[in-house]
């Protein structure tokens, strides 16, 4: 009887929107758009918009499937327990159907309106995130973020392929930049929300290998990221403006990573300020770096 009296209201549109992980989608849309705009071809505005829309819908679908698959894990973490499924605002099957619907629609529209190669890579990225990362890697290996990071690296590649119709070294480099950026970005976060991941049994690197190993790996990835971020300029795929920005931004990233990599937690009262600063800069870094790539392209076009 009590169960009937507390029957929840139907999920409203905001709950469906929350399933798509809108904050993650912002970064996906931005990097996808930059890949599209940085490509050395003219893209029709309607088709360009459609390509980015498909990337966004696909990311939303993958996010919904991720939340459906991880509802029990999300319920155990302070950061995620308010999501629609653990909060009991929606039936799991509804989230699953919503995720599958968005994913299929995004690939179909991309294939029909833009091209089969872009649609194929979009489908691969959705399967990679929802199946390979969420189901297979995340609960099994502390390297989950490293290999799973490829899922987040697909958008600029898809954007570029949507514009040009083929794959070249430049979009592969853009993919590699995000791939190398992902581990220090997430491990910096994992260092200061470590207890939450440990509670739900996710083998994040700080939980399994310890803080010292995580800090060393953050620094190692930042060291590798610096030359890779400058490579688009080195191979002639981007101009000097991008090259200078990449060197500067990656230099700051490396300096902040070095602060994290070369220190130890001072005690239980440690505010973890360097880790929080690195995480904040890592978000700004990606927006700034890809923004510089587009600005550089426009300068080249105007010049």
């Amino acid at each position: 009887m009590e169960a009937v009296q507390t029957l929840p209201l139907p999920a409203d549109w905001r709950d469906f929107f929350a399933l798509t992980k809108p904050r993650v989608m912002t970064l996906v849309i931005f990097t996808g758009l930059c890949g599209l705009l940085a490509a050395p071809v003219h893209v029709d505005a309607v088709l360009g918009f459609t390509a980015i829309l498909c990337i966004a819908i696909g990311a939303g679908g993958a996010g919904a499937l991720n939340q459906w698959l991880e509802a029990d894990i999300d319920a155990g973490m302070r950061r995620t327990k308010g999501r629609p499924l653990p909060a009991g605002k929606m039936a799991p099957a509804t989230a699953r159907d919503f995720g599958i619907g968005l994913s299929v629609a995004s690939v179909l529209i991309m294939g029909l309106a833009i091209g089969l190669l872009a649609a194929g890579i979009l489908a691969l990225s959705i399967v990679y995130y929802a199946v390979i990362y969420t189901i297979w890697l995340k609960p099994r290996t502390p390297q989950n973020i490293v290999i799973g990071g490829a899922a987040g690296a697909f958008p600029p590649l898809i954007g570029w392929v949507a514009a040009t119709g083929d794959i070249s070294l430049m979009p592969v480099l853009l993919f590699t930049i995000i791939f190398m950026w992902t581990p220090p970005h997430f491990w910096a976060l994992a260092l200061f929300v470590q207890s939450d991941y440990a509670k739900v049994g996710i083998p994040m690197l700080p939980v399994v290998a310890g803080e010292a190993a995580t800090r060393r790996q953050i620094l190692a990835y930042a060291i590798v990221l610096l030359p890779i971020s400058v490579l688009p300029w080195w191979i002639g795929g981007a101009g000097a403006v991008y090259g200078a920005c990449a060197a500067l931004f990656s230099g700051i990233f490396l300096a902040l990573s070095a602060r994290v990599g070369l220190r130890q937690r001072t005690g239980p009262d440690d505010t973890m300020k360097p880790e929080k600063q690195l995480f904040a800069w890592s978000v700004i870094y990606l927006f700034a770096l890809f923004g510089a790539l587009v600005v550089d392209r426009w300068i080249t076009l105007l010049g």
């Binding site: 009296q5 507390t6 029957l7 929840p8 209201l9 139907p10 999920a11 549109w13």
Partner: peptide, 24 residues
């Protein structure tokens, strides 16, 4: 506190949510 199931408040909220979903 959530309104009780089938109470006028619950039905009004339910109709509002469904209307918003239909518009969306």
């Amino acid at each position: 506190e959530a309104p009780k199931f089938n109470s006028p408040e619950w039905l009004a909220q339910r109709d509002k949510v469904i209307r918003q979903r239909n518009v969306a």
